[in-house]
Design a protein around this nucleic acid. Structure first.
Length: 821
RNA sequence: GCGAAAGUGGCGGAACUGGCAGACGCGAUAGACUUAGGAUCUAUUGGGGAAACCCGUGGGGGUUCGAGUCCCCCCUUUCGCACCA
């Protein structure tokens, strides 16, 4: 054994052995309980960053612990390999996306192996390979057949910088989620997936996700945005046309003094030629189209609009009210049209005030108190007034009754509106999955027959810019119609890369099946994912898409899961000096450099020790050194003892010495603590507990009188407990301690509660709630004895001098509070 | 504005259902070993005080024998949502 902790040699040695033995290979085994540990797959951007290290080290410690606890562990990894950065890098550096991506994967795979994570590399998937993306295409076709995929023209989010369309989830505060640049609205024909079919189920099933963070559930609930209300049809005056509005407050409809359409509303287009109102209307609509969405939809934005010259008939009152177009009504929510009740809606109030539109109160507080409608809207529920036959009803009752009335008269109905929109999956980029559709002049839109899959992404030899790059590849576009055999054209858009990540974790269970996307038997064995670890930034992106995907997979008869992920854990960011690491700030920590200087084990240890995993972690090199020192300190202890341990069994005899018993007690207290902490992902306190155990071993050594058998037990226990965090170190130590079997196949130590039990306990004496004294007692001391012992205490006697004993509270085995007064 | 989470030594952070606040690590101080130490080991390390003691978990109230933990009000930070009809 080397006196010095030579992390480089040790880590290399074990990585090599693990690879040679193909040690982390997983296979279905019905005899053992399974455990599926999943981490969000990385985008191959070039190199692992420290956030990956945190994410994957966390997952690895869980995988290794569960394995040692007897679970059959699946711990896979892959690459989210399609996507824009590859194309952008290609444009910037002149490397083709494919080469750039595959090179990055090679480099990052090496880095992963250098970190010692226990991945089953035989299950690795890269989403940019035809073996994988052909199933994206297969899913597309199944969805198309099932009516879950459809094409329509409509307003879409267009990112100028990315030169492509984005789904709603990918627009954050009016900006592109990836680069933060402005997103504008454009009218384009796009493919959509009908995620809204599942809106209700996606919402309802959130209640099944008991082990998901509340925060994510809330974000999803808000994103789905269910609201119950009514659809009411308004006739356009002097016309046979009508339009629908959506409202959650039909009870206020007698107070509607105007209606408002979104600038993008279809009806508006037919009015722009009006000689009197057309010009202003046209200008307003154009202005809205040009305006930044973020500005337009911000609450601070002033409410602006123009009168269309048209009137609508309120079906309840038969009253003619003006139709306006205004910035604050959004085409994408509800029906893109609202009734405006300025007395009872603040937005309508502001608008009405600005344009001198009448304000009419129709609700008053049910307690009869007065409200001043001239100062602002009264938005609460109350009692209806000025509402014809509905006057006198409460809002709650009116909501029911008035919808029934509308229904009976045929001009409205009860309806539910969702904020969630269908998922726009078309992307006008090269580096993605080709959408498997063929357009034939005769047969229309025809899916590519399954036998013709995959539609291979054509190789290119130069970078393609602008539009849909595939459209410029004549060989690709030209195709014969699978129906009629006549010349036809291929769809040239590619799929959103969130499609790839929506089901990759299914593919891991059967990565090489080539007759179907998944082997249902394998899915049945491994699913659900027991723990999914990743960043919270995907709360309403990936994490909602993949839930949708599972349900859609179920409905096309592929497997039978409602929810694929049993527990989700969102880990915090790694920051430095309080700021997010970024190249522009120059505060990026390179994992490679840390590994070179301190080793992967020290890095893994530190990144899990420095902070609880759900919070942000402030990188600090000195803390890292502390973890390195801990490993070196354990190494030295072993170095001193191992020569004396040969042939010594750890359970040689019952130990009688007080000092030995103290060390063994610490050992047997630490074992359950570490296991329990890692199960809750409290790696920081688990590691602290192992450090304490090492300190106890040093203390025991220092005091003398500890025999090798006990020191062996201490060293072996620390080694086993350390394995999830510092596996190379632990494997080496385990071997030095004389074991042949890898720790991966070794069981987690069993604690002995008998040995863990304290021989004497210290009981605190409080006087009037303040700690004043303490005494030692046997652990089985009764409450009566405890009280008696406390009352004999000198401090207690002194405190009772001239005072009265009011009461004594005994907390068994912990504390006595003597109340005097 | 609405909602959620958080606020504990010089620093990162511990503290299960209310029961010794500050585990563990960093940093710091002193000593030992040493030619030397940025290595290692030992000891000390929330503040005040000579001490008995007193004060301390963002601030203010409250419940309780007892509050970092529970309740009310306020402040700050972070993160979501933000004209959603």
């Amino acid at each position: 054994m080397n006196e010095k902790y030579d992390f480089e040699a040790i880590e290399q040695k074990w990585q090599q052995r693990w690879a040679e033995r193909d040690q982390f290979r997983a296979a279905e085994n019905p005899a053992r309980p399974k455990y599926y540990v999943l981490e969000m797959l990385p985008y191959p951007s070039g190199a692992l960053h420290i956030g990956h290290v945190r994410n994957y080290s966390l997952g690895d410690s869980v995988a290794r612990l569960r394995r040692m606890q007897g679970f059959n562990v699946l711990h896979p990894i892959g690459w989210d390999a399609f996507g824009l950065p590859a194309e952008n890098a290609a444009i910037k550096r002149g490397v083709l996306p494919e080469k750039w991506t595959l090179d990055n994967i090679v480099r990052m795979r090496t880095q992963c192996k250098r970190m010692g994570w226990s991945y089953d590399w035989a299950r690795e998937v890269a989403t940019c390979l035809p073996d994988y993306y052909r199933w994206n295409q297969w899913f597309f076709i199944q969805f198309f057949k099932k009516g879950l995929a459809y094409k329509r023209k409509g307003l879409v989010n267009w990112c100028e910088k990315c030169q492509t369309v984005l789904a709603n989830e990918q627009v954050v505060n009016g900006a592109c989620w990836r680069d933060g640049s402005q997103v504008i609205q454009q009218e384009l024909e796009q493919w959509y997936w009908r995620i809204t079919n599942y809106a209700q189920e996606l919402l309802d099933d959130l209640s099944k996700l008991e082990n998901w963070p509340e925060k994510v559930l809330t974000m999803q609930t808000n994103w789905i945005g269910r609201s119950e209300g009514a659809r009411v049809s308004f006739q356009i005056a002097d016309s046979d046309r009508s339009f629908d509005i959506f409202t959650t407050r039909v009870d206020t409809i007698h107070g509607a003094t105007f209606v408002v359409l979104a600038p993008e509303h279809d009806l508006v287009k037919s009015w722009v030629n009006d000689p009197q109102y057309g010009p202003a209307l046209t200008e307003f609509v154009d202005q809205m189209r040009r305006q930044d969405r973020l500005l337009r939809t911000s609450e601070e934005a002033e409410k602006k609009g123009v009168f269309t010259g048209q009137y609508a008939i309120n079906p309840y009152t038969r009253e003619r009210i003006p139709i306006w177009v205004a910035n604050f009504v959004l085409m994408e929510y509800g029906t893109g049209a609202i009734m405006a009740v300025p007395a009872h809606d603040q937005r309508d109030f502001e608008f009405a005030t600005r344009y001198n539109i009448p304000i009419r109160q129709v609700i008053q507080p049910s307690d009869g108190s007065a409200v001043d409608i001239s100062k602002g809207a009264f938005v609460e529920y109350g009692t209806l007034i000025n509402s014809d036959r509905f006057s006198g009803l409460t809002s709650e009752a009116a909501l029911e009754k008035m919808v029934e009335y509308a229904q009976s008269q045929g001009f409205g109905e009860k309806t539910v509106s969702f904020r969630l929109k269908d998922w726009g999956i078309s992307r006008q980029r090269y580096w993605g999955t080709p959408i498997p559709i063929i357009y034939c002049d005769k047969c229309g839109t025809v899916p590519v027959p399954e036998k013709d899959l995959p539609v291979v992404l054509p190789k290119i030899d130069r970078i393609l810019l602008g539009g849909s790059p595939l459209a410029t590849i004549a060989d690709f576009v030209a195709v014969t119609c699978p129906n009629c055999g006549k010349p036809a054209r291929r769809e040239t858009d590619t799929m959103d890369t969130f499609v790839d990540s929506s089901w990759y974790f299914y593919r891991y269970t059967s990565p090489r099946v080539d007759s179907a996307p998944i082997d249902n038997q394998a899915v049945q064995y491994w699913f659900p994912v027991d723990i999914y670890i990743g960043g919270v930034e995907h709360a309403i992106l990936h994490l909602i898409y993949m839930r949708f995907f599972s349900k859609a997979m179920r409905d096309i008869g592929l497997c039978a899961l409602d929810e694929p992920v049993a527990a989700l854990f969102t880990q915090g960011m790694v920051i430095k000096e309080g700021a997010k690491m970024s190249k522009s700030l120059g505060n990026v920590v390179e994992p490679d450099e840390i590994v070179r200087e301190y080793g992967a084990d020290a890095l893994r240890l530190f990144i899990q020790f420095a902070a609880p995993p759900e919070g942000d972690l402030d990188w600090n090199e000195q803390g890292l050194e502390g973890c390195f020192r801990f490993l070196a300190r354990l190494w030295r202890l072993a170095y001193r003892w191992i020569p004396r341990l040969e042939g010594v069994d750890q359970q040689a005899d019952a130990t009688a010495d007080r000092r030995e018993r103290a060390l063994r007690r610490k050992i047997h207290q630490t074992i359950p603590k570490v296991g329990h902490d890692v199960e809750r992902l409290h790696q920081n306190t688990a590691i602290a507990a192992i450090m304490e155990l090492l300190n106890a071993a040093y203390e025991a050594e220092d005091q003398g009188g500890v025999r090798p058998a006990v020191m062996r037990e201490a060293l072996e226990t620390m080694t086993l407990l350390l394995h999830p965090f510092a596996p190379h170190f632990a494997e080496e130590m385990w071997e030095l301690l004389g074991h042949r079997e890898t720790l991966w196949n070794t069981t987690w130590p069993q604690d002995d509660p008998e040995l863990a039990r304290e021989e004497t306990i210290e009981i605190v004496i409080q006087i009037n709630g303040k700690p004043r004294s303490r005494f030692l007692a046997p652990p089985d001391v009764s409450n009566e004895e405890t009280e008696a012992l406390a009352l004999k205490d000198e401090k207690v006697k002194a405190a009772l001098e001239g005072k009265k004993l009011i009461k004594v509270i005994v907390i068994p085995r912990r504390l006595v509070n003597v109340v005097v007064g």
